[in-house]
Design a protein around this nucleic acid. Structure first.
Length: 199
DNA sequence: CATGGGATTGACT
DNA sequence: GTCAATCCCATGC
């Protein structure tokens, strides 16, 4: 007999049905898996087509097409010509909105992550949006992957880790437009965050 | 068709 | 703290 996919909850599915800012908060605590490597989401940001920091602000183009896909699709793009950044598309098909996955707490496959990253420290494997895609072996080729069905081996699941009762909420990082929105959600004090925040 | 600008990271002063 | 790497695409001439 076949072994069913382990799935201890469906909070990730509920989160995908929410408006993007709420989805970003609700996805903290869910798990991203690719092959032997997995990690718990500890930091996210929300992006929506109505504000200029979002790539979808310019409308439906070759670059932004995936952003308008159905909830649960991966939008992966190349940042600064160097790094792949992973987003989870949310909101109904036709609306450009996604949650940027900015940091993970490594759960399994840390040794494989160390190989890919070329670094040893556990807190340097997935503590940034470009780092975590490198650690998990996710690239621009994975743009359009379905994270719910795992059609390309990358999945998002709810392994039972609860979301933080009091998440750290801050402005988004590294943007110049709509930089005042408090659309970044973190596990407060987690050592795997992309950076520390002044209090 | 030429140009400019990043949702970053790592190395270096 | 500063700064280069590196490339796709949106924009403008």
């Amino acid at each position: 007999m076949t072994v069913p996919v382990m799935r201890t909850g469906d909070r990730h599915l509920q989160a995908l049905e929410l408006p993007v800012v709420e989805a970003a908060e609700a996805l903290v605590g869910c798990t991203i898996t690719h092959g032997e490597c997995s990690g718990v989401i500890v930091e996210t940001e929300a992006y929506h087509e109505v504000e200029p920091a979002c790539h979808a602000f310019v409308g439906l183009t070759a670059r932004t097409e995936t952003l308008f896909a159905a909830p649960g699709i991966a939008y992966v793009y190349r940042s600064y010509g160097v790094h792949a950044l992973l987003n989870v598309v949310v909101e109904p098909e036709g609306v450009g909105a996604a949650v940027l996955i900015r940091a993970l707490e490594p759960l399994t496959g840390a040794e494989r992550m160390r190989e890919r990253r070329g670094r040893d420290a556990l807190t340097d494997l997935c503590s940034g949006p470009g780092k975590l895609t490198q650690a998990l072996g996710i690239s621009g080729d994975d743009d359009g992957a379905d994270l719910v069905t795992g059609d390309r081996g990358i999945t998002i699941v709810d392994d039972g880790t609860p979301p933080p009762s009091e998440p750290l909420v801050t402005p988004r990082i590294g943007i110049t437009k709509a930089a005042e929105e408090l659309w970044r959600f973190c596990v407060d004090g987690d050592p795997h965050l992309s950076r520390r925040v002044r209090r």
